[in-house]
Design a binder for these strands. Sequence first.
DNA 1: AAGTTTCTGTGCGGTATCACACATATGATA
DNA 2: TATCATATGTGTGATACCGCACAGAAACTT
Lengths: 237, 237
Amino acid sequence: MPATAGTPAALTNHLLAALPPEEFERILPHLAPVSFSLGEVVYESGGQMEHIYFPTTVIISLLYLMENGSSAEMGVAGNEGVVGVALFMGGNTMPNRAIVQSAGGAVRMKATVLQEEFRRGDAFQRLLLRYTQALLTQMSQTAVCNRLHAIDQQLCRWLLLSHDRLESDDLVMTQELIANMLGVRREGVTTAAGQLQEQGLISYVRGRIRILDRRGLEAAVCECYKVVKDEYDRLLN
Amino acid sequence: MPATAGTPAALTNHLLAALPPEEFERILPHLAPVSFSLGEVVYESGGQMEHIYFPTTVIISLLYLMENGSSAEMGVAGNEGVVGVALFMGGNTMPNRAIVQSAGGAVRMKATVLQEEFRRGDAFQRLLLRYTQALLTQMSQTAVCNRLHAIDQQLCRWLLLSHDRLESDDLVMTQELIANMLGVRREGVTTAAGQLQEQGLISYVRGRIRILDRRGLEAAVCECYKVVKDEYDRLLN
DNA sequence: AAGTTTCTGTGCGGTATCACACATATGATA
DNA sequence: TATCATATGTGTGATACCGCACAGAAACTT
């Protein structure tokens, strides 16, 4: 496969698509397409990262695993962003795991090449930093939401965040997995999802959730969703 | 007051102290000392920031205010860091408020000067970015902690984070304020603090908390504290 | 010294979530 | 079609935290 195989795919990633043409051309030869399947681990907590990933269709969840085995999601990234910010922030590793929440593709770039491009201080750097600020907001708002809001609202938030990063209205995801992301019991998700289904906002069967009424979800979600969404829109256009 | 009045104070901030001498000399004339009193608002949510602040003795809390008036802390910064990362990350504002948790001093730098220095891509940029990654970890771990841990443990975490940023063993802080930070009821803090006092870890009277047994607190806190602490140590030496 | 404000302690009922147990339904496979 | 693994629904009791109400204690004011 030639080095330029990522051409059309790369533009599906909003950050890459926002680059000025010259910079995009310069970076393009260093991008290679990869595909991920559900549940795959992209980075291990504290593990060395060889590449940075620009999702095109994949959705990647950043989650922390407690010593006792429970887990909670701290953030999510799709084609609006990038996975592996530690590579340009200077830390190289992160104390959390990145796993595939929805199968799909990405383009990746070698860490060394990324760092060299970043150091130029051009549009690429500017975009990556603005994205990182948006991620900061997502994570901090997750903290607030975890503290102050009920499972129902958090499920809405989670569904909307996923829907934003997907072309389809169908999510392949069991309630068990959602529970791991939200850091709650599976039964809690069952109850909350049941309510949303009764209200006609979603429908689901065995690991398949369909968004029926996005407006309705937006009306049911807590303010946290909008805070994060607005910040992404503001920072990344 | 001459422009170099901040000389000794500035070195109390770990980020500034870690700069190579030439860079520090270059930056020094642009630093001006300021002092903050308890409860003062450093940045308003979404408000334009004119300066970036390098705390020397002040502790500043980043918190989000819900529409309904409740609040929760997403992060804290003291002399190990800086307040106003949005100024170099490119967003200029943040959707949260920064308020003074413990009165004290800082040195500040004009936004424009900061941005110019940042753009040089030298040690200053490297330090600021590594700090921001540490902050990212603090915020994300706060999200996890809010989800999975009990008030007792979170109070320990909060006390230790504050103690780390203070020279003294005494915290001037009412249970009411701590409750606002943790996003819980005041009574919940009363109960948790009562337990810690019975165990001989702290003592308090009317808005004054004394850390009696730091080791004991470290034994009682959840793993979240150590994750964040280790990450700060790793990234900022 | 008396009054006032602020801070802390405590009790009570309500609710959300938990942990566990088990029943049911769905889809895949033989 | 029968079997099996997986996903979802439901019930029960325990616990943590909430909201509210109010009492006591400490500091400040006059």
